[in-house]
Design a protein around this nucleic acid. Structure first.
Lengths: 249, 249
DNA sequence: GCTTGACGTTGACGTGGCGTCAACTTCTAC
DNA sequence: GTAGAAGTTGACGCCACGTCAACGTCAAGC
């Protein structure tokens, strides 16, 4: 059942040096150590390693990774992994966009057509356009939200996740009852939602409205909310549009 | 027309520090320098920068990038960019695979189902499986082939690209004539093809056969060959299957 | 029992691609 | 004329390992 360091290296593609490094900094401690110092890893370590490698692919610094994977609660872990799963999809889309930009550049050059500088760098710059979506789903957003997340202790982390679930669920019920987006009940939930989002990022009027629109437009967001009932994402969008009027600039 | 360093930074998303670094190591020299030392960039530099950034996304070291983007011939450059475009698609697919693996892991954990260690790391390890495809399209393969490429001088680089075009074109004509894969004419072209491939990687019998299969199965490869006429990729695959019998293990 | 070779161990130093000061100059706006 | 924004050139710092050296341990074959 226990795998030695070479077996783990073969299985996962990381080098044994890296595994030793992760042990040295306390990021991944072997399940047990042989009497001669040899390292042996078990299933729990493999799962942890997978999560570590996912975050490494997302270019999260190792010390931040450490505080993320150290959350020992199972539901918490899988919730975070869902978040990182979405981030992987975002990176997939990013490379698709880059490939498209490069393809456009090649055909333009070969045909001798001119090209604007903006077009040439579409997809490269991850801060310049689509502000809300990039804010929430871009690479640096993941980094920042991970850092914010890492600053919480475990109880706070659990509470934060539970809060979002509670909001979405309550919204789902109101959506099923065909509630008015401007009603007090719905607006109270939006206020909680805004506070919830603000852990990672405090959106102003325009940004929050944009975020609401993204919720309803983007398939990934919509699925997250509509699993509590169809129309939940749309209700949230419309409610946010009302709520956002009270926010500054 | 000329952009100062801040404008380029905004446009492309790189920092001005990075641009200064690229100037310092001779990777990207500004079009002109103001009398006070300020840097100004033109269209040619932007195109070069795009290529640099693509290669950086592919994790190619800067000195290798330098020797790649220094090929001054236009057709050569666009041929290389095509190659790197494919590499971007490969990375896109890689992240898609990672996301899928993570998704599988999450649902398995939440349902309490067991999971084999192999399944958990599908897509992470880029050396363990699909040897031929990974050899040709994986990240490290791009790195190695770029390094091999960089070791050639410009005349050799141009000759190498022309050779592949010539082979593919001749194959296309024979495919249109419904030639026999085992015929001398076709086999002579396969011999040239094997020699051509061997600049970056010398495949044995099994690997070369696998490469041929990939040519016909993978849409990206197929398109590359079939632009010289439908059925070119299939002819090449079948001809390789014959040719490969003469290769060692 | 002894050697051999594969594979593990622990330090220690090296490296690539910038980030981040510090100290200074230059242009623009009021 | 002066403030402030943004440029310049060094110089050092940093992260995630790679790489090398010196050494220990185990299984297999003689």
């Amino acid at each position: 059942m226990d795998l030695d360091i070479a077996a783990v290296a073969r299985l996962t593609g990381v080098t044994s040096r890296t595994l030793r490094h992760y042990d040295a900094i306390g990021l991944l401690t072997p399940a047990r150590t042989g009497h001669d110092g040899r390292r042996f890893y078990g299933d729990a370590q493999l799962l942890r390693l997978q999560h570590i490698l996912v975050l490494r692919e997302l270019e999260v610094p190792l010390d931040t990774i450490a505080s993320i994977v150290d959350t020992d609660d199972a539901t918490l872990t899988s919730a975070l992994m869902r978040d990182h799963h979405v981030a992987l999809l975002a990176r997939r889309d990013r490379f698709a966009a880059l490939a498209e930009t490069v393809e456009r550049t090649i055909t333009r050059i070969e045909k001798g057509l001119p090209m604007t500088a903006d077009d040439m760098f579409e997809g490269f710059d991850h801060t310049a356009y689509e502000p809300e979506a990039r804010e929430r789903w871009g690479d640096d957003a993941v980094a920042r939200s991970n850092a914010a997340w890492a600053s919480l202790d475990k109880a706070d982390q659990r509470a934060h996740l539970a809060e979002h679930e509670a909001i979405a669920e309550a919204l789902g019920r109101l959506a099923a009852a065909d509630a008015d987006p401007a009603s007090d009940e719905v607006q109270a939930l939006v206020a909680r939602h805004h506070a919830w989002v603000s852990l990672f990022w405090t959106p102003g009027r325009e940004a929050y409205t944009g975020l609401g629109a993204t919720y309803a437009d983007d398939a990934r967001f919509r699925a997250t909310y509509d699993k509590h009932g169809d129309g939940t994402a749309v209700l949230l969008r419309d409610a946010i549009a009302v709520y956002a009027q009270s926010l500054h600039d």
